[in-house]
């Protein structure tokens, strides 16, 4: 989100610089016009306007080429076969270059996660809001502090523990202790069928 604002701001700054430089060139002409008493310059205005439109249209491909290309966008979804994951086991898959934890939770883990008081949470979020099927926890394995990959089954809450700066996540992947500000993110995913999850 913020990157588009950055690009927009940069473009506006460049536009202003361009306008200032062109003002210097145009101001000469305006003085001349006052001398000769030329009529309204609709022709000039129209030329500038059309020129500016063309310049913008020409700049766009140069900016857009840095956006994800077709081959990257094609890999933006990943289908994962979850039929071989036993209860209480996790796998890690790569999606858009980042690790995604898929854990098949035990009943105890589910109940414990659902019963956690929201007041105890740094980033309050109900467990039910983090999963589609309670048995399956699908989340990005990227610590929300500075991006390290947390270790599973470790930490004070027996969820995940990030060794870089000591963030502790619970069995729902929510931040409990440590510098991380928010819970481990849940990516967009759906169950294609009972054995397959499509992420992205």
């Amino acid at each position: 989100m913020s990157s588009s604002y950055l690009i927009l701001t940069t473009i506006i700054i460049f536009l202003l610089i361009f306008l200032y430089i062109s003002w210097i060139f145009i101001s000469n002409e305006i003085e001349n016009k006052k001398e000769t008493g030329e009529r309204r310059d609709f022709l000039y205005t129209a030329s500038y306007a059309l020129g500016a439109v063309g310049l913008g249209a020409a700049v766009w491909p140069l900016v857009d080429q840095m956006n994800p290309d077709a081959s990257v966008k094609a890999l933006s979804t990943t289908e994962v076969d979850i039929s071989n994951i036993d209860v209480g086991k996790s796998i890690t898959v790569l999606w858009r270059g980042k690790p995604v934890f898929i854990r098949r939770r035990t009943q105890e883990e589910i109940i414990e996660s659902q019963n956690t008081k929201l007041t105890e949470l740094k980033d309050p979020q109900k467990d039910q809001d983090r999963v589609k099927k309670p048995e399956w926890l699908v989340m990005l394995g990227v610590c929300t502090h500075l991006g390290c990959v947390p270790l599973g089954g470790k930490g004070d809450y027996k969820g995940w523990f990030c060794p870089c700066h000591g963030s502790h996540y619970d069995k729902s992947g929510r931040i409990r202790k440590g510098p991380a500000p928010t819970n481990l993110p849940i990516p967009k995913y759906e169950f294609v069928d009972n054995n397959t999850i499509k992420i992205g």
Binding site: P61, D64, Q65, N67, D69, A70, V72
Partner: peptide
């Protein structure tokens, strides 16, 4: 030419 946005044009 094929994948980059407007790559063919550039």
């Amino acid at each position: 030419m094929r994948n980059v946005n407007y790559g063919w044009l550039i």
